Each structure stands twice: as C-alpha cells, then as structure tokens.
Simulated assay, not measured.
Amino acid sequence: MNDSIIYALDFDGVVCDSAVETAITGWKAGTTIWKDMPDAVPRAIVEQFREVRPIIETGYEAILIIRLMYLGKSTAAIYANYSAKVQRMLDEIHLSIDDLKKLFGETRDNWIASDRADWIAKNPLYPGVAEKLRRLGQRHLWCVITTKQERFVKEILRANNIELADERIFGMDRKLSKPEVLKGLKAQHPGQPIYFIEDRLPALDGVQKHPELADVKLFLALWGYNLAADHAVAAGQAIVLQQLDTFLSDSLGVV
C-alpha cells in the first residue's frame, strides 16, 4: 500500500451517529450525581441535545450539558460562556474532569453489560459508512482518531462487522492530541498523503496550528455535529466541505 492514502477518521459525527446514546449516558451518569433527576430521560432533552452536541469535544461533557438542560437552560444559553459554565459546575459538584470521564465510561460499561443490543442500537453508523469502510480497507490504510475511549469504538465496529486493528484506533486511552496522532502517522508513513476527516471545526483548526501538518488534507464532515456558522468559516480556510454522499462515492481519491 505504498501508493495508498492514509485516511484518519474521527469517530462520533463521522462514522457513528452517537448523539442519542451520548445523551442517555450523560443522563444516566447525571442521576448518580444529582438525586433530583428521575431515571428516565425526557425525550425533549434528547432532542435538544442534538442542538448542543457540536460544542462537545469529549463525551463526559454530556453529563454537565444534560444537567443544564434539566435545569431549563436553552441551547443558546448553554452555548454562551460554555467553558465558564463547565468550570462552575465542576466546582459545585467537587468532581474533576477525570472523575467525570471515569463515571461516563463506567456508565457505558454498565449499559453494555445489561443490554448490549440496546446500546449498539443507540450507536448507529451513518448510512453507507460501513460498506465504505470495508471497501476502503481493501486498498488504503484507515484509522480512527477520537476522544472516545477505545473499547467503545471497538464494540461498535465489531457489531457492524468492520475489521480494524487495535493499533489503528487512537482514542482517549492514548492521551495524545489529534495533531500528535497525525504527526505519528506522518512519521510512520513518510511521503504518503493523509486525509483527516473530522466533524468539529475546532479540531481542524487545531491541526492547522502545526506547520509540520500543513500537507495533511482537511475535510469537514457536514453530516456530523457542526453548525452552519462552522461551514462558513471553514469555507474561507484550506478545509474541504464534505457531504456524506461525496464521501461514500469514493471521490476523495479511492478508485
């Protein structure tokens, strides 16, 4: 595969539409912190969560966002001074980010243990993506670069009969930023083009801050968790606005 392209794919919002599962996991975890929250997550909150999903970088944030929604905060209110809101809530509950990451992961583990089929069903792949990845693997090398914990990526890929070696799943467990992973791929595969497909504009902006990654081709996955405002900003940068049907049609360079 010396002439192949290295496809570096974000997971949530590119491969997997995990918004509903993330909302429910956030709610389940939240009920262990705030005892006034009932066991069942209201449908309206799950629906509102999709509107706020683009602001989330790492899954644990869903716990805090879900709490804000339960307290009646609007989508606009959550977006306003988001970082300050997160810090204030962490101070109030006396938990660290690492505590919340652990709680979020354990909540998922418990859900999988009690009803794996239901958990998988709440993590559907985007239409056509499974077939695309199987086809991609026949000629090109692809990997996942995500802030998700790796065991959950493996569960979802396995459930969809998609083979990907463990060493090609770069998740939270590695404690590497996405630019660091891309630099590692460049070192391992010198001279081969790298396509980074990501649905969050801040992640793409982060790559652009590293001059040594200037030759990595950047794609904003418009089918994922982003906003019209993100599209407008990306259009003025060296970022390709990618529609799902174009990605599926092999027009990124796969014959």
Results as ranks from 00 to 15, higher is better:
D17W: 01
D245L: 06
R139P: 00
A159V: 03
E198C: 10
F49I: 01
I45F: 01
N160H: 15
A84D: 13
D17A: 06
W142F: 15
V15M: 07
R158C: 08
I78Q: 06
L241S: 07
L125M: 12
I65P: 01
I162K: 04
L248W: 10
S177R: 00
K101Y: 09
S74L: 10
R168H: 14
L176K: 04
F219D: 01
F11L: 09
L227I: 11
T75V: 14
I5P: 00
W27R: 02
A228Q: 09
D17R: 04
I93E: 03
N81A: 14
D118C: 11
I169M: 07
K102T: 08
R116I: 15
D3Y: 07
T75W: 00
L9M: 08
T22S: 15
K85Q: 15
V240K: 12
Y126F: 15
E57D: 12
K186T: 04
T22H: 10
A121E: 15
K183E: 13
L220C: 05
I55Q: 02
D36Y: 05
S96T: 15
A203E: 09
Y60W: 13
F196T: 02
F247I: 13
A159W: 11
I24V: 13
W119M: 10
T146C: 12
P38H: 06
A221M: 04
A19C: 14
V41E: 02
D99G: 10
D3Q: 14
R174H: 07
K183I: 12
K28S: 05
Q87H: 13
T22W: 01
L133R: 05
R139H: 12
I162P: 04
F247P: 08
K73Y: 14
K209M: 14
N160D: 09
E47P: 02
